[in-house]
């Protein structure tokens, strides 16, 4: 028996494939998708509901893998991302590409066959939106990249909702718009305290291009737009008071925190506490808002509110 003369390259560890799907981002995707699915009028068999959420999550994982395949060089230049499987050299690029396309294709096909072709088409659009329109096209070109990229993260509740109802109405579009408007203040708060990394690899993040002052004003502007928008589902009668009041209270806190960020300017060696606080709250905001949307729906079903 002969031993191989040269040891072949090690195949990538399965954990690195898993890391390629950005599991932490996926948890928010699963949560908002599930909320859209639970808040929608109508019902879906639990097996089919599980399948729909699985497809949304796997689709998001596929898009994340494609994003990292495309951005491996950029990721290598940033401290936050240098240890991802591709820039760290633990996986070859072709594997990441094939994995990304494979997951995306499988997610769309299963969604189409098991749930319906409308949610499958929106899922395909969201994957294309994130991995091409955002990653390849807009991210390196415009400082508004996050505003447009926010659209990719806004798809899950829309898909979850449409998986139940089978058609697109105003309510799921409103959920889409809420996440869309939420993304800029959420992300720019982060970008304010990690901006050095993006500048190094030439990605035009808002604080780098337009300056800190303008970014701060825009954070405030998007928050001021977000809060009334978040109450619209209540005004049009799509939800009850539980959601409406929660949206108002949460929105009030969001505006207070972003006003603080919007009207200050950092000093050298600033600890950036208000920005970090706004970033942390923005995540909590979205979780509670969507949880309240579901709570509101169940309260109505069980007759606890009109």
């Amino acid at each position: 028996m002969t031993q191989p003369a040269i040891s072949p390259a090690l195949p990538a560890d399965w954990r690195d494939f898993f890391a390629l799907t950005k599991p932490r981002v996926m948890s928010l995707v699963i949560f908002t998708g599930l909320c859209g699915l639970l808040a929608a009028p109508g019902s879906l068999h639990p097996v089919l509901a599980f399948t729909a959420i699985l497809c949304i999550a796997v689709g998001a994982g596929g898009a994340a893998a494609l994003n990292q395949w495309w951005e491996a060089d950029l990721d290598a230049g940033m401290k936050r991302t240098a240890q991802r499987p591709l820039p760290a050299g633990r996986m070859d690029r072709e594997s990441a590409r094939d994995f990304g396309f494979g997951l995306s294709g499988a997610a769309v096909a299963i969604m189409g066959l098991a749930i319906g072709w409308l949610p499958a088409a929106i899922l395909a659009l969201s994957i294309f939106y994130y991995s091409w329109i955002y990653t390849v096209w807009l991210k390196p070109r415009t400082p508004q990249n996050i505003v447009i990229g926010g659209g990719a993260g806004a798809f899950p509740p829309l898909i979850g909702w449409v998986a139940v109802t089978g058609d697109i109405t105003l309510m799921p579009v409103l959920l889409f718009l809420i996440i869309f408007m939420w993304t800029p203040p959420h992300f720019w708060a982060l970008a304010l305290f990690v901006k050095t990394d993006y500048a190094k690899v030439g990605i035009p993040m808002m604080p780098v291009v337009a300056g800190e002052k303008s970014t701060r004003r825009q954070i405030l502007a998007y928050t001021v737009l977000l809060v009334p928008l978040s109450v619209v589902p209540w005004f049009i009668g799509g939800t009850g008071m539980i959601y409406g009041v929660s949206a108002l209270v949460l929105g009030g806190v969001f505006i207070v925190l972003s006003t603080e960020v919007g009207l200050r300017s950092s000093v050298p060696d600033d600890a950036m506490k208000p920005e970090k606080r706004l970033f942390a709250f923005s995540i909590l905001y979205l979780f509670i808002l969507f949880a309240m949307l579901v709570a509101d729906r169940f309260a109505t079903i069980y007759g606890w509110q009109a």
Partner: peptide, 22 residues
Amino acid sequence: DPRTHDLELFRARQKSRNRVLG
């Protein structure tokens, strides 16, 4: 022997991937 060692690592990696895929 590095060749034996590498091959063992290679097989172990393959095995864990196959298990997960399975």
